[in-house]
Design a protein around this nucleic acid. Structure first.
Length: 445
RNA sequence: GUGGCUGUAGCUCAAUUGGCAGAGCGCCAGAUUGUGAUUCUGGAGGUCGUGGGUUCGAUCCCCAUCAGCCACCCCA
């Protein structure tokens, strides 16, 4: 009989333990940070009625949508982000939820687009949003959460780029290009990639902008300097246009607030060229960029939308939030060689030194687990060197060694696997407190 | 979705102008019945991405297909 070839679909991946360990670490970190700001967990189905998903978004997301007819003849689609399901969720449950509603959502999404490094067809997002708040406080908090999150992830070389849609829209109104905003924003958004010349060409080609209009739009995108300098120049560019002036004022406010709340000045960068593709953003927009991999793409982004759920309810439900792209961040960290090679979820390794003491080892492991220490007992009485080699490769922090000599002396050898130093601790089989104390001291380092 | 490049051992890569498939690293075992390294010895591991065609014979040539990477597009 012929075997079926084991394989996975394009853009879909298996996750081995060495990949899952850092994955879960990032997810745990994101959850912890989100919760510390009062965001609450929710979940929604992977499948939605097709009209829920196709109503919003652009032609592009419609194209990427996984869709099919289910067993009951319903047309269904797999969610391609967590924001559209959130809109439906809030519209459906607004009576129970109350406002403001702050939620986080860590889940898998699917997009049938072409793959590339850090771009997959099945990937995970870690979203957080505040619904029902128009005050800038929520926008400021979004920036604080992002900053906190990356700090907790040990990533310092980070740029959070911030812009305001109203600044762009004000400029477009002033130039009489408001009806072509999508094409214009797309062109501006590419500024970092195709530079001045490319943007001008694209503006004239896709948005039919005149040379003069292009020049003025470009003036917006190429602004450089400190945030204060950029704000003052932006103010000049949009002067006389209420929309634009309002946007600049909010950007200024957010900038000061974030700095006051402790976001490092080097992290926050006003960037008039970022627009974000999604149509539903209406206010502040943010993107984050790893300084060491500027071309890798945004690892987290978001913004404000003032009418997200308008398709599903007449109630005005403004919101602001962002998504951490888990798989893209992991891809970036891997490229930078910054993923720790720890495969063991338990920090303590107990050697099977002598098989006749097996029950003693299992008992000691149980005693340590009872006080909250993760312990793996090696299952075979292999040579000690082999066991230690395994423990080292798996990333254990400490090894416990007890042979006849130790049992006779009433001791247990606690070995630090990072420094190779050993300490002998009293152990008589009845009480593992001394071992636990030594292990805790070691793990705290 | 469009275009380009790539696919040989777990990993990084050779070779065969169409004639038995190779190395380094890693893995397993021993030297070494109480300590992660080094060294030495031995060993396991390959449908040459998959399917078809041409041929006496295909890993090599042709076609298709799958997957990965890059660009466009878009975005996490």
């Amino acid at each position: 009989m012929s075997l079926i070839q084991p394989r996975t679909l394009k853009g879909f991946r298996d996750y081995l333990p060495e990949a899952m360990m850092p994955r879960e670490w990032i997810i745990d970190t994101a959850r912890r940070v989100y919760r510390s700001y009062g965001f609450k967990p929710i979940d929604t189905p992977a499948l939605e009625y097709l009209e829920i998903l196709t109503g919003k978004g652009s032609d592009e997301t419609d194209k990427q949508l996984y869709r099919f007819e289910d067993h009951g003849g319903r047309m269904v689609g797999m969610r391609f982000d967590l924001t559209v399901p959130l809109a439906r969720f809030v519209a459906q449950h607004q009576q129970e939820l109350g406002l403001p509603f702050k939620r986080y959502h860590v889940a898998t999404v699917w997009r049938g687009e072409n793959t590339q490094a850090g771009r997959y067809r099945e990937f995970m997002q870690c979203d957080f949003d505040t619904i029902g708040v128009t005050e800038l406080t929520a926008d400021i908090e979004m920036v604080l959460v992002l900053s906190d999150l990356f700090t907790q992830l040990g990533i310092d070389k980070l740029t959070i780029r911030v812009n305001h849609r109203a600044v762009l829209n004000g400029m477009l109104e002033k130039l009489g290009l408001a009806d072509r905003s999508a094409a214009v924003l797309r062109a501006l958004d590419k500024f970092s990639k195709i530079k001045e010349q490319g943007v001008v060409e694209e503006l004239q080609r896709t948005a039919q902008a005149t040379a003069s209009q292009s020049e003025q739009l470009l003036a917006l995108a190429i602004l450089e300097g400190t945030n204060d300098q950029i704000l003052s120049k932006l103010g000049e560019l949009v002067r006389g246009n209420a929309t634009g002036e309002c946007g600049v004022a909010e950007l200024s406010d957010l900038n000061q607030a974030a700095l006051a709340a402790g976001v490092p000045a080097s992290r926050l960068k006003l960037d008039p060229s970022i627009a974000r593709g999604l149509d539903y953003y209406t206010g502040i927009v943010v993107e984050t960029q790893l300084e060491e991999l500027p071309d890798f793409g945004s690892v987290a982004s978001g913004g404000r939308y003032d009418n997200l759920a308008s398709l599903y309810t007449n109630q005005m439900l403004p919101g602001v939030g962002a998504a951490l792209g888990l798989d893209r961040l992991l891809g970036a960290l891997e490229k930078l060689g910054r993923l720790p090679n720890v495969q063991s979820p338990a920090p303590v390794f107990l050697c099977m030194f002598d098989p006749k003491h097996r029950n003693d080892y299992l008992k000691l492991a149980a005693q340590l687990r009872a006080v909250g220490l993760g312990v793996e007992v090696y299952p075979e009485p292999k040579k000690l060197g082999k066991q230690l080699q395994y423990a080292d490769k798996q990333g254990f922090r400490a090894a416990l060694i007890i042979g006849d000599a130790e049992f006779t002396a009433g001791q247990c050898q606690v070995k630090d696997l990072q420094t190779a130093n050993s300490t002998n601790v009293p152990y008589d089989g009845a009480d593992a407190a001394a071992i636990a104390a030594e292990l805790r001291r070691l793990l705290a380092e």
